[in-house]
Design a protein around this nucleic acid. Structure first.
Lengths: 168, 168
DNA sequence: GAGGATAAGTCAGCCTTGTTGACATTCCAA
DNA sequence: TTGGAATGTCAACAAGGCTGACTTATCCTC
């Protein structure tokens, strides 16, 4: 974390007032609605919901991930995930392969069809993010990421970092 | 929006790569879980959920707001809001007053008891935000807010700004 | 004053997505 | 061979979204 001249001075801790914090809370609330709006619109036309989007996203992100790993990333019960996963497998969007080393495990992959849906969902979501990033500029984006990362629970942060490392 | 030397240069638009955007998307996902975790824990012990929290928050924020106004802030149907509001009124957390000028309207206020719950919920949520803000510093916080604001839909942004103006 | 518009509330029924709890199956490893 | 781990499944339930239809009360306008 970079030192900060303002907070270091002991003065001007105004960004920590309850008023500032409340604005941040409301910004999170309204922004998250925008964040999910575009994929939700696409999914509404199908028989899928946000839970399907999440599963598809993380299977795409970590091809071959096990059900257990996905469970701990998503933070839901296996029954809840299983319902979603079952429909995705039935509909031919996700493939479940028995593990080679440990045959109890199932490794999850997107099919061609699944990858196409993933693409259309993430395109929609990225378009909005891209517009926001462009409007705010790279310095703001860095701050955005810093604050979000500091808001995560430790175990969520671990998942986030693991995913991050694989990526860029 | 301040000019930005990096993006202005036409070079180094690296912060707009799909990889960067995906990281931002995942940061939003994991951070939002943290964002709601603390109030959720408090609410789980009561017969309330996140929907009650949202209603309480915005009634606190805009005392005397009408049902219609609350509906458009929350972006849900009146049936959905009504279910929540009814329990809050029955339990004596919210008071509904007939409008003076227009008697069709109901103006919503938190009772003493409602204000107490609001306080405990927002204390919990603010604690986490404060820690994140402090860890990231004021410049990061400014960027955080900038990006979130740029992610909002126009009508959400309007509500956000209206609330913001009343506050600080 | 009548009629249409508006604000709020309500009933019924549906869907998604979360939860518990119980239990079966399969397979690895001690 | 037996215990535990990973997975899958059934049943039941709850929160909180949704639509549609309808009532009541209150404006507001012609």
């Amino acid at each position: 974390m970079p030192d900060n001249p303002i907070s270091q001075s002991g003065q001007s801790l105004l960004f920590l007032t309850d008023e500032q914090l409340r604005k941040g809370i409301e910004a999170m609330f309204f922004a998250y609605r925008g964040f999910t709006a575009d994929p939700d619109r696409i999914l509404a036309d199908m028989e899928y919901g946000r839970a399907h989007h999440r599963a598809i996203h993380f299977i795409h992100r970590s091809p071959g991930t096990t059900v257990n790993n996905l469970l701990s990333i998503l933070g839901v019960t296996k029954q809840s995930l299983n319902r979603v996963l079952r429909t995705l497998i039935e509909d031919g969007l996700v493939e479940s392969r028995v593990g080679k080393e440990d045959k109890r495990e199932r490794h999850l992959h997107l099919t061609q069809k699944g990858a196409e849906l993933e693409r259309s969902l993430s395109d929609a979501q990225r378009d909005r993010m891209r517009a926001a990033y462009r409007a705010a500029g790279p310095i703001a984006v860095a701050g955005f990421r810093q604050v979000l990362e500091a808001m995560m629970d430790q175990d969520l942060r671990r998942h986030y970092d693991t995913l991050k490392d694989r990526g860029a």
